[in-house]
């Protein structure tokens, strides 16, 4: 029931998001067809605007957008004039999603063990090394990390291609660049979560029952300790799946992250709106998933 209600809420939410986004785009000065060169006559400019209905009143354009949205059609891209926004999403989303999913797995695959390890070794060497790693990953921005990876692993040692997309080897560096940053965040959250839980009363009870330290950790400690990671993982996955502008630009990956920012810079109204809608839907569903996982991990959480 709760989940059904949340999904129904999606409709007014999308309306509000699209309305605000539409208004903001139109309020931004400059239009898709403001360019270094203008056509030879003002009549040509008028005709181009008319073709994309940019000469109509804004409320009418919004109505047109909503009508097309109902049919699942985001309209033609204003910049890439042989493509519809649906074409662009169809081509870019699978790429961004595979990159994002791999980076997500890497982030959890490194972050969770490092987090657990540092929490269990608190105050010892292992903790310092692991925490330093986490701190470094969080602090070094992607636009520094990615060129460093390219410089050493690709240009100097030729282990991986410098850029482009097309094989598993091409995916390694971008996945690393994207995943390592998030692995730092995950490790820190995991460490905090586990430290807090291991001091809780129910852990003392479990230890008092004479359970082994491993059993205490796995049966009682891990589940509640994962909560902060899980609540962070939802939006993180949404971010990763819709692509990262920096990584996609540096590695020339045909995903949606670069399309999103360039879409805005080009004032490609329909492309930006389409991607915002996509991101909103993803975010809502992933947050739902987070809520659901909460019920699995924490018996105290119940949704009516």
């Amino acid at each position: 029931m709760y989940f059904l209600k949340r999904i129904l809420w999606l409709i007014p939410l999308l309306l509000v998001v699209s309305g605000v986004c539409f208004a903001l785009l139109r309020l931004t000065p400059g239009s898709p067809f403001d360019r270094e060169r203008r056509p030879a006559s003002p009549e040509i400019e008028r005709q181009i605007a008319a073709k994309y209905h940019l000469d109509e009143p804004v409320w009418k354009q919004y109505g047109r957008f909503l009508r097309d949205l109902l049919r699942g059609d985001f309209g033609p891209s204003l910049k890439y004039r042989n493509h519809t926004v649906n074409d662009l999403i169809r081509q870019g989303l699978p790429v961004s999603m595979s990159l994002g999913a791999l980076a997500f797995c890497l982030a959890l695959g490194i972050g969770l063990p490092v987090g657990c390890y540092t929490a269990l070794r608190r105050g010892r060497w292992g903790d310092y090394v692991g925490s330093l790693y986490a701190l470094l990953m969080v602090c070094v921005p992607v636009f520094v990390l990615a060129p460093l990876l390219v410089m050493f692993l690709a240009v100097r040692w030729h282990w991986f291609p410098v850029a482009l997309w097309g094989s598993v080897r091409h995916a390694v560096l971008p996945v690393l660049a994207l995943g390592l940053f998030y692995s730092g965040r995950v490790a820190r959250l995991m460490r905090e979560g586990l430290l807090n839980t291991m001091h809780a009363e129910f852990i003392k009870t479990a230890r008092a029952k004479g359970l082994s330290e491993t059993a205490v950790l796995l049966r009682h400690g891990l589940r509640p300790a994962l909560l902060p990671v899980v609540s962070y993982a939802g939006p993180m996955l949404a971010d990763l799946l819709t692509g990262s502008f920096v990584v996609e630009t540096i590695f020339q990956i045909p995903g949606l992250g670069a399309a999103f920012l360039n879409g805005f810079l080009n004032r490609d109204y329909s492309l930006v709106l389409g991607l915002v809608m996509l991101y909103a839907v993803l975010l809502v569903f992933l947050n739902l998933a987070v809520d659901f996982i909460y019920t699995l991990l924490d018996p105290r959480v119940k949704y009516e």
Partner: peptide, 18 residues
């Protein structure tokens, strides 16, 4: 024909023979 918008990426692709 590759669309590349970053000059550094272009140079790297060229330098590594891609």
């Amino acid at each position: 024909v590759l669309p590349v918008s970053s000059p550094n990426t272009a140079l790297n692709l060229y330098a590594t023979g891609a």
